[in-house]
């Protein structure tokens, strides 16, 4: 369950909650033109405008490697076709659940776990916490 009561945001576990809603605090909310707003220059944890990831050779190689590692032969994934899709989704679901336990933690933390998991599969790829979740406008635009 990843519903994080907002009240927790002020508590010990608050930083992760804050991380996930920071763009709302900084980019939404009431603005009154009679008031001055502090400059956002130099913000230490702002993530929204620094992560323009462009489709890159790195991305392609990473996906290619991930596909190579993917266990297509195991269980329901063998010769996957549409008839097998249901079984496949079910199995992915179990993984999704286990990841769910990490949800709500700071993204950097879950990325660290993910990386550890990937390394556990014998992957020697260096850590790329930002590149892993790279779906971005930037890339889409370049793609088009």
């Amino acid at each position: 369950m990843t519903v994080v009561p907002a009240q927790q945001s002020g508590g010990a576990g608050g930083t992760s909650g804050l991380y996930d809603v920071i763009e709302l605090i900084l980019d939404r909310g009431l603005v009154i033109d009679a008031f001055v707003r502090v400059s956002l220059v130099g913000i230490e944890i702002l993530k929204i405008d620094v992560r323009v990831v462009v489709a890159s050779v790195d991305t392609y190689l990473r996906f290619a490697e991930a596909c190579n590692r993917l266990d297509l032969e195991a269980g329901p994934h063998k010769s996957p076709g549409l008839p097998d899709l249901v079984g496949e989704i079910t199995e992915s679901g179990a993984r999704g659940k286990s990841k769910g336990a990490l949800s709500g933690a700071a993204e950097t933390v879950s990325d660290a776990f993910r990386q550890a998991r990937d390394e556990g599969r014998g992957e020697e790829e260096p850590a790329r916490p930002r590149a892993r979740r790279a779906p971005s406008r930037g890339r889409k635009e370049e793609q088009e």
Binding site: T2, V3, D20, V21, L24, R28, T90, R95
Partner: peptide, 21 residues
């Protein structure tokens, strides 16, 4: 979550209505 297990969903709330003021 059940229907789309390939999605990781993160839900935060209840929050102050930042997006609806």
């Amino acid at each position: 979550r059940r229907n789309q297990p390939h999605l990781e969903l993160r839900v935060h709330g209840p929050l102050p209505p930042y997006s609806f003021v």
